Structures are given as structure tokens and as C-alpha cells.
Simulated assay, not measured.
Amino acid sequence: MDSTVSAYSEKLREMSMLSLLCSCLYSQPHPNIFGQFEDMEVKSLDKRASGQAFEVILKSPTDLSPERPQTLALPPQKKEPSLGELQKRLEAAEERRKSQEKQVLKQLADKREREKEVLTKAQEVNNNYSKMTEEKLHHKMELIQENRMARLNALKQRLREKELHAAEVRKNKELHTELSG
């Protein structure tokens, strides 16, 4: 019993899922010819250990077997187009060319317009940035100038105070020399 189960499970591993389903659904063996198509024939060969084998037989187009009807038909003869038809085709092609040319020119004009808008916007941004930078620089220069002036005024104030102090010291010295003198 074990050997039968192991042989069966080994066989299941070798079979494809499709073959397994087909063998479960159709218990009767397949006929030798598996399928016949217009230009090929598929025959089933004996089952092998690795699965099923098929033989595909391609039929040549010149096969004149009685089973197959002769379907070699000549292509329909094309009639020569008239001068009027050729003229209409030529005019239609010219209209298509002109239409495509107009469309391409319109796309180019639209692209140029968008490029101009982008360039104008970039120039505005650049001008605004330049103005803002110039204003900041001007403001910083004013602050530096004010700072310098404030320091200069502070130095002048200290100098005046020192001069006043020196004058007071001289005055006191003169008074002291007069009193002691």
C-alpha cells in the first residue's frame, strides 16, 4: 500500500496541474488526434513519465488533400484610380499638410508666448530682488553712518567733558596757587 501511495504521489508531482484536472474531469482516454485546425494538426502521443507528449503537424499551403478545401484565392484585382480620384487624394493630402503646418505653427507661437511670459516674470523677480537688495544695502549704509556719527558725537562729548574738567582743574590750580602764594 505504501509503495502505491508513494508512486501515486510521485506521479502527481510530475504531472502539471492542467493535466491533473483534465484527468480528473475526463476519465476516458483521448483519441489519437487531439485537435485539428485549418493549417495544423495536433496528435497526442503515448503518455510518458514526464507528462503528456504531443505532435504538431503543420500543413503547407499547397497541401491538396481531399479533406482540406482549397482556399488559395487570388487577391482581388485593384482597379486603377482615375485622375479625379488621384486629384482628390492629392488635395486631401495637401489640406492635411496645411492643417498640420498650422497646428505646428500655433504650437510654436504658444510656446514662444509662454517663454516670453516666463522671461518677463523672471525679469520682474530679478528686478524686485535687485530693488530689495539695494534697499537693504542702503538701509545698512544708513545704519553704519548713523553708528559712526553716534560714536563721533560720543567722542566729541567726552572730549568736551575732558576739556571742561581740564579747565576746571587749571582754574582750581590757579586758585590754589593764588591762595598759597
Rank of each mutant, 00 (worst) to 15 (best):
M1H: 07
S3P: 02
T4P: 01
Y8A: 15
E10A: 14
K11L: 14
K11S: 12
R13A: 13
L18G: 15
L18M: 13
L18N: 14
L20V: 09
H30K: 03
N32D: 08
I33L: 08
E38Q: 05
K43R: 09
S44W: 01
S44L: 04
L45R: 02
K47P: 03
R48A: 11
A49N: 09
S50V: 01
V56Y: 01
I57A: 07
K59Q: 01
L64F: 00
P66T: 06
E67T: 10
Q70R: 00
T71V: 08
L72D: 09
A73M: 07
A73N: 09
L74P: 03
L74S: 08
P75F: 00
K79E: 10
E80G: 01
P81R: 03
L83K: 08
L83I: 07
L86N: 05
Q87R: 10
Q87N: 09
A93P: 02
R96F: 03
R97G: 10
R97H: 15
K106P: 02
Q107D: 12
Q107C: 04
K111P: 03
E113I: 03
E117I: 07
V118Q: 11
L119G: 11
T120V: 04
K121E: 13
A122K: 15
E124R: 10
Y129E: 09
S130P: 00
M132H: 00
M132P: 00
H138S: 09
H139E: 14
M141R: 11
E142P: 01
I144V: 11
Q145G: 09
E146P: 01
L155N: 13
Q157R: 14
L159N: 06
H165M: 10
R170F: 06
R170Y: 05
N172D: 11
K173Q: 14
L175E: 14
H176M: 08
H176L: 12
E178D: 13
S180M: 13
G181M: 07
G181I: 02
